[in-house]
Write a protein that binds this DNA or RNA. Structure first.
Lengths: 148, 148
DNA sequence: ACAGAAATGGAAACCGTTATCATTAAGGAG
DNA sequence: CTCCTTAATGATAACGGTTTCCATTTCTGT
């Protein structure tokens, strides 16, 4: 007996409506651990709701990013990728990006050390340059086992 | 009495010719500490050599990146930016990117700690995932003093 | 000077994303 | 439940950075 999806409240809070396209997109994002592009999401959504257009995908993803429900990543392959922020479910992680095939591996090794260091760096930098730091990006680039 | 520019050898090594456009581009990159886009470089080069086309800028930058003479950065504003790798001249640094105006601040604070940690992480990750890591990317995003 | 290869420049193509605008549908009021 | 307001949508066209294509030019070794 699934109640109303957990995100309904979030939408209401900011005066946004809970629509079919938005739910469809969130369903796709909920059901994957991959880092999907707008096109990926469009195709996945399209299977069930062929009427939903690509424009809506972009618009919705933008909204979700602004609402803080989704991360937007740029792995340097010319398209943005999106990942649902599931509270508490998945620990903070960084990425290993294969420049050959685009494969992305999440890693959490040393993540605590990294985060601790970045906290320090953030603090120093934001004071020194009067900069309000909102996020950081860390990724390792290289060739995965198949692409070497 | 400037000898042949230091890069002549590099070009020869990989069977590439030392041409006017290539020198013009390297001159621009040598003379700036900014993070220029292809368009920026095109305009700067254009002042002195109006005949040099945008295509050549892109091609040459690609070549320089492949030759390891230039870094290519993506600060998420939809265009790549380029920075000459001047051996020993400038220490390794990371970036602070203003998402408001696009201003980029180089920083080196804690850079040794960062590099040390990344060495560790790289080692563990490359073994664990049989991944050949070639570089890392670190940047902090936020709002600079003017944009807050 | 000559031939073969590398490099170039302009135009068109590409591709992810955004803007435009007429149409549809969510959801509160009655 | 129905109506009404307004947010949301979808098709199409536009946009902007980058790449491709191809004919022409420029190097470089002979």
């Amino acid at each position: 007996m699934p109640g109303p999806p957990w995100w309904s409240g979030k939408f209401r809070e900011c005066g946004c409506r809970v629509t079919i396209p938005r739910q469809a997109i969130l369903d796709i994002l909920t059901g994957t651990s991959e880092h999907l592009s707008a096109e990926d999401i469009y195709m996945a959504v399209h299977k069930e709701y062929p009427a939903i257009g690509l424009t809506t995908i972009y618009r919705t993803l933008d909204l979700l990013v602004r609402m803080g429900m989704v991360f937007r990543f740029d792995f340097g392959d010319g398209r943005n990728r999106y990942e649902l922020i599931e509270e508490g479910k998945k620990e903070h992680h960084h990425h290993l990006v294969c420049t050959g095939c685009g494969r992305i591996i999440d890693y959490t090794d040393f993540i605590e050390d990294e985060v601790r260091l970045f906290k320090q760096v953030e603090e120093v930098l934001s004071k020194k340059h009067n900069f309000e730091i909102t996020s950081h990006q860390v990724q390792f680039l290289g060739q995965c086992s198949k692409c070497q």
